[in-house]
Amino acid sequence: MADLVTRTPVVSARGLSKVYSTRTGTPVVALTDVSFDVAEGEFVSILGPSGCGKSTLLRIVAGLTGETEGTVDVNAAGAGPGTDVGLMFQQAVLLPWRTVEQNVALPGIVAGRRFRDVRPRARSLIEMVGLDGFAEKYPGELSGGMQQRAALARSLLQDPRLLLLDEPFGALDAMTRDQMNLEVERVRQQTGKTILLVTHSIAEAVFLSDRIIVMTGRPGTIREIVDVTLARPRELEVTGSADFGAYTNQIRKLLDRPE
């Protein structure tokens, strides 16, 4: 832990606020004064009630939306543009006219590489997420869970240092979701990536995270940051342990209590 603190954080947010101007004229304050760091190799989850600005926060970090106030430094520079951050949304957003491997290869194509050069890496990622044999299928032939696996492989293609996941498994059934969480945990172990995850599931957050940012309702701000010190690597059995229960209780209380 000590050496984590001395290193430059991968994400460093200071006093972030976001106000959306709306068509009706009344501005929506989505975020107020949010500050946090994510260290290299750390897994941080963001938990909070619906509409508290979690997606907004992630989109600001991803550079998809500007902040109204504050600063965010993302220090994840990779080999070139587009290679620094891997993104995954609630929907897989695969292009239906591209095969699975062509979809997984997309970040490489956008970065100017040829498909045949990216293909071997796309193939090995497809295998890693358990989609062997589906590389040449089209997204329309895949189930929702399989599509999310493909999206996970795509987000890893350019070997980004930072993964931003916005409720990536929210649309999946509980069983597939558990499997996908194991998958993410495995990816984290194998690759040592820094991961920032938005989720609605307390159990998912506790299972995966080193730290959990618990937010208040709108306008969203940080309620508390909870360190999760459960031993790694974690298997699904840990969800039955007393420590795990204590964490989920603590966080549920934080979320329930208005202030």
Binding site: F89, V93, L106, V110
Partner: peptide, 24 residues
Amino acid sequence: AERLELMRSLRAGRALTIRLVIVP
């Protein structure tokens, strides 16, 4: 919109977004 957002997150230029996403 998600498709355009995907291309934006990959830092794809306009021409590439048109060719890879908008036209198809």
